[in-house]
Design a protein around this nucleic acid. Structure first.
Lengths: 251, 251
DNA sequence: CGACTAATTGATACGAATCAAAAGCGGTGG
DNA sequence: CCACCGCTTTTGATTCGTATCAATTAGTCG
């Protein structure tokens, strides 16, 4: 797990308000409702950060009174058992809000997969504005509900599904988010490696690999390269993924 | 799955304010902070309900603009796959708040295990008071955070742990909540049956049963009866449960 | 006390893990 | 530009934990 080594976080002090105005991730970020209102005061309190690939920027057990909104790149959140076994809880994409935790203490870690850009907000500041703006409060709650709901879907996958079903679920989910964030319809990009996928799905890399091969042989998907997939038969993929997520209809 | 059949919900219109004043579950319920203030208006908006054993009182996919606070008994929340496989997401005990969901639509079902008493609050009413009382808002958020946090712990268990570890985790968790709610130190009560435990842990009843027997043979636990356990060696049980939950130290 | 359901125990099968090796891929330097 | 090295991914052989199938025992209720 060499990727767990820590690297520096590059913070650049830019004109945050201008950054927010042109932020391409705002339409699916928690701060969306504030862009309509004249909320320069809120945005100037934010800070833009860049994180190098493979950097753990939130540590399990640490006190951390910030929210992070991802604007570019991808992250993995995970828990680790004393003997090193790792479970990935979810992957973050642009629009993902990180920071829901009890008493500001995280009970999982978050690591960048590739180069990640994010906005940092102090919780106090967010709370302050949330108290004044019901829409922001609702937006935050929605993000949190969605996270809880996704966690429950994940629970179902890990508790009841076979390797084939798990991978199908993962691909459908990935397909859905990539459509939402990047507008890709049938192309699935996999910024994470096979270990990440296996640690997310509770199986091994070998099983992930074998199952990918099966899917390709069955004409369900085609590989452009190891990290890029074309969905050929969404119906069958969706059927395999079962009720894991509420019907992942796209478009 | 005969237990999924629906039975009537008995609603009794009592003097709610009096009920709340003497509610034994209030010290660990979301409404706790309001008991200090003079909040008769809030409590009179609540309704006390009783639910017969084995009743699904919240249905996956249903619109349901209420919160339920459990005051007596136990519940199971679950998701079901099209082919009938069931995953239990969590068990509810007195103090558990049910109702966090996206746009008031539940994406899981909730069923009573034994006779359950609960308080029903309309979400509008709760929101109204939450806007005026930061402590109530915080209390609600805390419940939600705890639910998310527990779901993540559950994810780790289902994704990475062996049958022995899963059952140990379950027992430690059960032990911890029963201490908090009922003050029992080494006695664990199991209101749920073996199917529930297996569907919560992602294993089969047979495996649950075999593992229980192992634990008893190893001197870790003793059975009073099938639904009542004495913990003999919490150290070993905790070690097995690993980092599944943040150190389950009691007392 | 008998009938039904829940829980336990036993025998076998199977899916995925593990162990092992080969192939693919990306970067570096001669 | 190609050869080499390390890392990731794929493929193969075998093992192992848990599921499944089957039967017995315990517990509960009329």
């Amino acid at each position: 797990m060499s990727s767990l080594r820590n690297r520096a976080i590059d913070a650049s002090a830019l004109d945050q308000e201008a950054v927010c105005k042109t932020c391409w991730a705002k339409s699916f970020s928690f701060c969306k409702p504030l862009h309509a209102a004249d909320m320069g005061g809120f945005f100037s309190a934010a800070a833009s950060l860049k994180v190098n690939p493979g950097t753990v920027f939130i540590h399990d057990g640490a006190k951390f009174p910030f929210y992070f909104n991802i604007t570019r790149g991808a992250t993995r959140s995970f828990k680790i058992l004393p003997d090193g076994r790792r479970q990935i809880l979810n992957f973050g994409v642009p629009g993902t809000l990180i920071g829901f935790s009890d008493r500001s203490i995280f009970d999982f870690s978050v690591e960048s997969i590739n180069e990640v850009s994010l906005c940092r907000f102090t919780k106090d500041k967010v709370d302050f504005y949330a108290n004044k703006h019901p829409e922001l409060r609702k937006s935050l709650l929605d993000k949190m509900m969605a996270e809880l709901s996704e966690s429950y879907a994940h629970t179902l996958v890990l508790g009841k599904m076979s390797a084939r079903e798990r991978l199908a679920f993962f691909l459908m989910k990935q397909n859905k988010t990539q459509f939402k964030v990047y507008g890709e319809l049938n192309k699935i990009n996999l910024p994470m490696n096979r270990y990440d996928i296996s640690d997310y799905l509770g199986i091994t890399t070998e099983t992930v690999s074998r199952t990918f091969t099966q899917f390709e042989n069955e004409g369900i998907i085609t590989f452009i390269k190891a990290s890029e997939i074309i969905v050929r038969d969404r119906r069958r993929l969706g059927a395999l993924a079962g009720g894991g997520t509420r019907s992942p209809a796209i478009g």
